[in-house]
Every structure is written in C-alpha cells, then in structure tokens.
C-alpha cells in the first residue's frame, strides 16, 4: 500500500527560517523522518513520495499551497497520508493540520498527523483528523513515530480506531455514546458519595464555555426601520412545505408574507415538536406576530415589514446547525437592507 508524507523545509534538510518561503515540491520515496515511518510500516506499506513545503509559504498562500499539494497527492492516489509530526512549530503545525484535513475531506484519503498539544494547529484540527500528541521538540521524534505507526497501520487496514485514551490520539471533542457497566443512577450516587467525601471524581460531561452575544445598539428611528421576523418556533405555511423537522432541524425555511396581514389556522401552523402546538396552530401570530407588525406598519410606527420571514425549529437542534442557519439568514437580511430583526423563540 502507498503512503505520501508531508514535511516542512527544516525536516527536509533544506534550511531553517531563511528557507521557509520555498514552494511545494514533491520527491520520490522518503526524506528525513520518513525513514523512521517506512521502517515501521514495512512490509505492508511504504512511503512512495514526500511533499515538502516552506512553512511561511504555506501559511501566507494557504489556498494556493493547498491546491498544489492536493494535486500532488492525487497523482499517487495513496492509501494513507502522513503529515509531520510538527512538535511545537506553530506554522508547521497549522500547515500539517490544514493539509491533512484537506486530503481527508477533499480526496477521501485517511490522514494522520502529530504535534505538541499547545501547537495552535492542534486546537484547529484535532477534531478533523487523527492527531497524535507529541513532545514539544524534535527530540521526541522516536516517541512520536512509535505512537503514529500503530494508528497508521490500523487506518491502512481499514480497522476501526478506538477511543483517544486507548489509541493515544488527541480527543476530537466529539461526543460518542457508550454503554457503561453501571446504570446512570448508580453512577450518580457513586459520584455524589465521592464528591461529599472530597475525593476525586470524573464528571461525564464537562460544562462548556458559552458564547454570549452582545445586544446591538438601539435603532435610532424605528419609524424608518425595516423590520424582519425570524423564529425558532417553527411557524411555517400550512402543510409545512419544506418538511422542517419537528426536532433536530436540518434546515430552515424562508417564506413570503407580503400577501398576508394575519396568520390563521388556515394559512399557518407550527412544525415544532417541543411545545404544546395547540395555541400556535389556532393562531400562529402568537409565535410570529405578523398581525401586530402589519398594523404598526400601517400606523407608521415602524418603517416597513420585510417581505420574508425565516423559520426553523429550535427543538433539539444542534447549536452548530443553528449557527450555520443564522449566518446564512443574517447575510441575506443584511443584503436586503433589513435594519432590525424580531427573533421569537418558544
């Protein structure tokens, strides 16, 4: 089986900082640390080519460097891609992480890298690729290779990779279900007994740091403002034309409200499965206040109501999905000249 290896100018023996601007080049066979990898991978696999790129060049021309290197990798169509290890070299770590993730995502070739846990490339890419934790300098090369080889072999054989603790790679931050020995209530009682005794215990879920969004400054003259309605309460035209899920939404809908002054049981409903739908289905203005805003528009209390509303269901919807919806919706609203949004939740 074929392996392609990526290293920087320093590990290729070309030079240090003064040579960090060299453009990507590809050489046949192994260069530098590739020898140690080759020794470990034999006889099932070998490094057929080594790609070398200067760290400055890569980081300053990231799109170009990535495209060039992906082309080079494609020529060999390898079974595995190894990048680094980069130890604590920050730009090398970012380059190794970037290219390993790109090879995996864009070419569908499994990729592995390694670096020191505080290398900025670690936080950026550990969730995307298998990344082994190494020492902070090249003195840890032997140790790094020894950790990467067993994983590389498993990936080449298409075997399932076990947990980070068992296999020695950095946790990707992905939550995965497991069956434990004891039921949850017993685990809770045991944890409480330890906590009360002042002993060490391990929480099963570490609380995340939350984003807090600063409110925007107030609108100076609301009578001139163009206002849009956006809801996570699932208000959709009757029949839910986009089939937005009742929970864990994978999409949002955009609907024209220009012909309507009022939401009724005949023209709208909620797709949301997380609250009592009876009152929203009777009169969806209760969640998406079209009727009042239309009146305010007529009375000149607001400038104008934007002609579309956006809707999704917040129920059980992943924050990552919500962020992605918000980014798209936000860009459209800005492009449409909307000054303010009334966001309703349920």
């Amino acid at each position: 089986m074929k392996v392609v290896h990526y290293i920087n100018q320093f590990f290729a023996g070309i030079g240090g900082e003064e040579k960090a601007d060299i453009q990507p080049e590809m050489r046949d066979g192994v260069v530098g640390p590739g020898m140690a990898f080759n020794a470990g991978l034999k006889p099932d696999a070998e490094i057929v080519a080594t790609i070398i790129c200067g760290d400055s060049y890569f980081n300053e021309n990231i799109d170009q460097a990535k495209a060039t290197i992906l082309e080079m990798v494609k020529q060999h169509d390898p079974d595995l891609f190894i990048a680094g290890p980069a130890f604590n070299a920050g730009r090398y770590g970012v380059a190794a992480g970037t290219i390993a993730a790109a090879v995996q995502q864009e070419l569908g070739i499994p990729a592995i890298t390694g670096m020191y846990v505080e290398n900025p490339g670690a936080d950026m890419f550990k969730k995307d690729v298998i990344m082994v934790s190494t020492r902070d300098s090249a003195a840890g090369m032997r140790d790094a290779v020894a950790k990467m080889i067993p994983l590389a072999k498993k990936m080449l054989a298409g075997e399932e990779i076990g947990s980070p603790e068992d296999e020695g790679y950095m946790a990707r931050g992905i939550r995965k279900n497991v069956f434990l020995e004891d039921r949850g209530s017993k685990r809770a009682v045991d944890m409480l007994v330890k906590k009360l005794a002042g002993e060490d215990y391990e929480t099963e879920f570490a609380m995340p740091e939350f984003d807090r969004v600063e409110p925007s400054p107030a609108i100076k003259d609301i009578t001139k403002a163009k206002i849009a309605l956006v809801t996570s309460g699932g208000i959709v035209p009757k029949g839910n034309p986009d089939r937005i899920e009742s929970s864990s939404a994978s999409k949002y809908g955009k609907y024209d409200l220009s012909a309507w002054d009022d939401l009724t049981a005949d023209n709208a409903e909620t797709a949301h499965g997380g609250y009592d739908p009876v009152y929203a289905n009777q009169d969806a203005d209760r969640v998406l206040p079209l009727d009042v805003l239309r009146q305010m528009e007529k009375d000149g209390k607001i400038g104008e109501l934007h002609k579309y509303w956006y809707s999704t269901t917040g129920n059980g919807t992943a924050v990552a999905s919500a962020k992605a919806f918000a980014k798209e919706i936000g860009e459209e609203l800005v492009a449409d000249g909307v000054d303010a949004v009334i966001l309703t939740s349920t």
């Binding site: 969730k127 931050g173 992905i174 939550r175 995965k176 279900n177 949850g184 685990r187 809770a188 944890m191 409480l192 906590k195 215990y201 929480t203 099963e204 879920f205 570490a206 609380m207 995340p208 740091e209 939350f210 864990s248 059980g316 919807t317 992943a318 924050v319 990552a320 999905s321």
Partner: peptide, 30 residues
C-alpha cells in the same frame, strides 16, 4: 445531550461551572 448527529455540537442549552458533577444518559441526536 443533544450534541448533533455528528456529536460535535454543544450538548446543553445552558451551562454553569458549578455544574461540575454530571452523569449523562447519552447523545440523543446519535
């Protein structure tokens, strides 16, 4: 938890550092 189908999203809608001993019944989005 509701960490998304890929398990990569934030699990809870609210959090606090004082909630430092947690038992979880798993990711319901899996």
């Amino acid at each position: 938890e509701y960490a998304g189908r890929d398990g990569a999203s934030q699990s809870l809608a609210d959090a606090d550092p004082l909630a430092n001993a947690v038992v979880t019944g798993g990711n319901a989005n899996e």
